[in-house]
């Protein structure tokens, strides 16, 4: 007589794969600049919109973005969320703010953290500026900017977000 056994409902089969990740030629140029503490975008030769971080093409036109444009480290909040759960593998403690920000001189938002702010007072159109890590910690990474913090400038009207020149916002 065979003994009754609990059915097998799972096995552990961890998968380890090693990759030599490359960012891409256009992102590499961007990363080389941010290594030096400079935010850059790349302009589409066809529609002239400025992309940050550049990923290799103007996604709208499907053409390579060659021309490099130095951007401001001031930006405008396009939208945001207050996150109450931790990110896997990230030490940031919730609640924290993840925002879509458009740097002055760029036409598209990127995602970054906001801090030194009252979470409940963050709003669309708000002006912010990068808080950089100490220079000796700079690497080929967006993380060179620790976060963005609010600055004392008037809000940008929604219809103007994504159209500011690199010189900034006069209000």
């Amino acid at each position: 007589m065979s003994e009754r056994q609990d059915p097998v409902t799972g096995i552990e089969a961890p998968i380890y794969l090693k990759y030599n990740f490359t960012a891409g030629a256009a992102p590499a140029r961007f990363l080389s600049q941010i290594r030096k503490g400079v935010l850059t975008g790349q302009r589409c030769p066809r529609c002239e919109q400025v992309y940050i971080p550049p990923r290799g093409s103007c996604a709208a036109c499907g053409v390579a973005t060659e021309e490099e444009v130095v951007l401001s480290d001031k930006a405008t909040v396009e939208s945001f969320t207050i996150v109450s759960i931790p990110i896997p593998g990230n030490p940031i403690q919730p609640p924290y703010i993840v925002a879509n920000l458009v740097a002055d001189g760029a036409n598209i938002s990127f995602i970054h953290l906001m801090s030194e702010c009252v979470n409940e007072e963050v709003h669309i159109g708000q002006r912010v500026q990068a808080v950089w890590k100490p220079e000796e910690e700079w690497d080929y990474a967006m993380d060179n900017i620790r976060y963005f913090k609010p600055i004392d400038e008037p809000d940008v009207p929604v219809e103007s977000i994504g159209t500011l020149p690199v010189s900034g916002w006069e209000g």
Partner: peptide
């Protein structure tokens, strides 16, 4: 292919087939 990412890998071959037909893009 080194630093090239996906989009940078694809664009040149697309450009060439567009050229063969005289079309602009997708």
């Amino acid at each position: 292919v080194g630093a090239c990412n996906e989009v940078e890998l694809i664009m040149p071959v697309l450009t060439e087939v567009y050229r063969q037909l005289g079309i602009a893009n997708a």
